[in-house]
Design a protein around this nucleic acid. Sequence first.
DNA 1: GGTATAGGTAACTTTTGAGTTACGCAAATA
DNA 2: TATTTGCGTAACTCAAAAGTTACCTATACC
Lengths: 105, 105
Amino acid sequence: MATPKLDAFQVIGDPSRRKMLMLLSADSLTINSLAENFQMSRPAVSKHVKILYSAGFISIKDVGRERYCTLQKDGFEELQAWLAYFDQFWTSRFKKLENLLNNKA
Amino acid sequence: MATPKLDAFQVIGDPSRRKMLMLLSADSLTINSLAENFQMSRPAVSKHVKILYSAGFISIKDVGRERYCTLQKDGFEELQAWLAYFDQFWTSRFKKLENLLNNKA
DNA sequence: GGTATAGGTAACTTTTGAGTTACGCAAATA
DNA sequence: TATTTGCGTAACTCAAAAGTTACCTATACC
């Protein structure tokens, strides 16, 4: 993997990375303890971690020779903002319908 | 394009598809009127539409020889549910911190 | 100091999604 | 009825992401 720079949407597009975030939602984990949950090689996990990190989904804290990954808000917020925009769409659509019904009555 | 079966996350991973959803948030559009907003060929747009449809992001209504695409909730809800899960993570984390501070005081 | 452990990087292969062109079909139009 | 318009599908190319193995560095341990 060339560890490309991906946006938040592309980052969570990968099922493995989503699984990693799920695992990290339970506890902070080192690279190896993360890798135990996957069939792929450790270098592959390492690169996914790098991608998650550079997109702001996790932070990494070096403790001796280990690296602890912890969930971080930033990456999620970008997604939330995007969804919020469409939320607006549905609510305004609902209001339009509501107005329509009220005017009819 | 072989129009692969993609999950909701992979679907919005593509910038073009996100742009399509944005355009459709303003108005329902036919395939061609959608395609006008992109540089790619119409068949390419057609396939993106198919992907958006099969993942529940849009509905399609045939009107004569035209096909009108309209935003649909289903696809978005899957994403929202996912984000809601992590939202829980942050709030519970905040509560833990809150409890910690209260116990100290 | 030697060895095991945790992890990163480089180079390469494989997979697959995104795009294209060519073609076909049905509905509208002349 | 012939033609144009709107769109789908098939077959293909291309680019890039995902995975691999091999190798290197640094910390911990004996």
